[in-house]
């Protein structure tokens, strides 16, 4: 993460320097920039992909939101993007469903549980990998590869059988444990890189002052590794919030499902499709996360660009 920040600054620096030295900033877009006509063509060439990008990313949301604000019949009668009389009936209907409220609560619980357990497991392990020379150290490489090697799809049947044998089927705790297990390798890997950048001297000084290892982790390592912890927490929460394959097989009763499962069932259960309700349900599962996201965008971007995608 620290490296990322460095790159960003570097990119900005060069841009600033170049802008100052070489006139209009879009000079670098191409050689045509010399003539006014060329610059116009160039602008258009740049704007077309950007407009497509925004349409591609945002339109599906806007259309879904528009449908969620219509009445059931209106969806067919008036397929326009702007509803004539926007109404919140679909949202009221969805929130009134016990299935939605239960699933929402489960998603929140499993999400925070996964984030907490992932951090609790990975911090000590990362500290051991980063600070001690012991034989298990070589497992670190395996840690970086395992999540890529084993997708949740491959875990579906074995974990189902294990859960049945262990009597752990249909429990929220099982979901928390399983999702944490899937996130731990990535979390350890991110944290090791981070902890290694914290100067050992800090800890050695604290050691001289009589701080135990626990205290050193608590008061030196954790505060300095906070950005990594937030990234891990967000990625863990995202996994629990969005995961479908495992919740599909590890839960059996309605009370234990998370949002994606409930949304999946919603499509099939109602005989005649209630499109506004489906749209409202979808928006309600996405919006909370987008609200969190606007506050922590850089951590997620860091998570993606360090190759921690899943």
């Amino acid at each position: 993460m620290a490296t990322n920040t460095r790159h960003n600054t570097r990119a900005t620096d060069t841009r600033v320097a170049r802008d100052g030295a070489s006139g209009p900033p879009d000079r670098r877009i191409g050689g045509l920039a010399a003539s006014p006509l060329g610059r116009g063509v160039r602008r258009v060439l740049l704007w077309i992909p950007l407009i497509i990008l925004v349409l591609w990313t945002v339109m599906p949301f806007l259309i879904t939101m528009s449908i969620s604000l219509k009445a059931r019949g209106e969806v067919f009668a008036d397929p326009g993007l702007l509803p004539d009389s926007p109404r919140l009936d679909a949202y009221r209907e969805v929130i009134a469903r016990p299935g939605f409220r239960g699933a929402f609560l489960n998603s929140v619980l499993v999400g925070f549980g996964t984030a907490a357990l992932t951090i609790a497991i990975s911090v000590p392990a990362a500290y051991a990998f980063a600070r001690f020379g012991f034989r298990g150290r070589h497992l670190l490489l395996l840690f970086t590869l395992l999540p890529r090697l084993v997708p949740s799809l491959g875990l579906m049947i074995p974990l189902y059988q294990i859960a049945v044998t262990a009597g752990m089927l249909d429990k929220r705790l099982t979901l928390v444990i399983v999702y944490s297990g899937m996130l731990v390798p990535l979390a350890v890997w991110l944290l090791v890189g981070f902890i290694q950048q914290i100067p050992r001297e800090l800890e050695e000084a604290a050691n001289v002052d009589g701080a135990s290892m626990f205290k050193r982790i608590r008061y030196i390592v954790l505060p300095l590794a906070l950005p990594a912890l937030i990234t891990i927490g967000v990625l863990a929460f995202r996994e629990a919030w969005n995961e479908f394959t495992l919740v599909l097989v590890l839960t059996t009763t309605p009370g234990k499902r998370t949002l994606p499962y409930e949304l999946y069932l919603m499509q099939g259960i109602q005989g005649i499709q209630n499109y506004p309700a489906e749209a409202a349900f979808t928006i309600l599962t996405i919006v909370p996360f987008i609200l969190i996201y606007t506050r922590i965008e850089k951590y997620i971007v860091a998570g993606i660009t360090t190759g921690s995608v899943k």
Binding site: R238, W241, N242, F244, P260, Y264, T282, I286, I290
Partner: peptide, 8 residues
């Protein structure tokens, strides 16, 4: 879109 589940 990275924040949106496959089902959604």
């Amino acid at each position: 879109p990275y924040l949106v589940s496959g089902i959604a």
